[in-house]
Design a protein around this nucleic acid. Structure first.
Lengths: 141, 141
DNA sequence: TATTGTTATACTCTATAACTATA
DNA sequence: TATAGTTATAGAGTATAACAATA
């Protein structure tokens, strides 16, 4: 057994656990992870441009343009040009988009919410919440 | 603002943070997350069958067969039929596969390892490690 | 020229359905 | 019939490259 750097070991466990979690969440179906995140941000921060959304989610603008286009096709957002700078597109939630966010946020039936509630004690959920805060720092480093 | 269930809020933060982390890790290139996990498991547990690997990683056997096939093309694993039950395929690490696992495990230069080391204090890394343990329970529930 | 966004294309990961070979 | 695995195909998510419109 080679000597192990504990941080490298943690990195490996993160890769394994994250992969497993993402597969599990996806398998439950429902509105897709990524799109829901974009919708939630629109609800929280209001009107944004495609570029702002891409920056906020740390995605390529091209990828975000694609995602926004699909959300528009699904009737969950609208786009309109910024009157002051016609290169830019303002993106807004539609009522249907807002309903979906509200429903999902309130839903106690979402698989992940339900499982966190059932499998973890309140103090364990607090550990996970703190870890998310830390991991965001890592992702944004 | 609708009343918020704190657990639903945590679920949302997990989706956002996990997505961001996964994108960030991918962007660094290097051996792919999923394949490295399979290689590491082979190193730790020794020879496995495709089905065992799929079960361990909670993936569909078809998906794992695909992954193993690509690892074989890359010269990182070999397959051979179980002499006792010729439906089954034993999967083994090649020397090249073992070298890759060793190099990656020891590497202090991997982006994730390096960033965890630089951005988080030891007690913060302990929080993340504990959260991974908890999240594995959630993923496997 | 620089910025904002889009289109075209491709790659990774994973899934389902249908199949083959072996037990 | 049941089990282990493979092949074919599809979809989500995201990336890069090339482009168009506007500033």
């Amino acid at each position: 057994m080679p000597e192990e750097d504990p941080t490298a070991r943690l990195a490996h466990e993160m890769r394994e656990t994250l992969g497993r979690l993402v597969r599990r969440i996806r398998r439950e179906g429902g509105p897709s992870v990524q799109k829901l995140v974009v919708l939630s941000r629109l609800e929280r921060d209001g009107t944004s441009t495609v570029g702002e959304l891409a920056l906020a989610e740390r995605m390529r603008p091209q990828s975000m343009a694609q995602a926004v286009h699909e959300l528009e096709d699904a009737g969950l957002v609208t786009r309109r040009p910024d009157p002051g700078d016609r290169r830019r597109q303002f993106v807004d939630l539609t009522p249907a988009g807002r309903d979906l966010v509200d429903a999902t946020r309130r839903a106690r039936e979402g698989w992940l919410t339900e499982t966190l509630e059932r499998e973890l004690a309140p103090d364990e959920r607090a550990v996970v919440a703190e870890a998310m805060r830390l991991l965001r720092r890592v992702a944004d480093a």
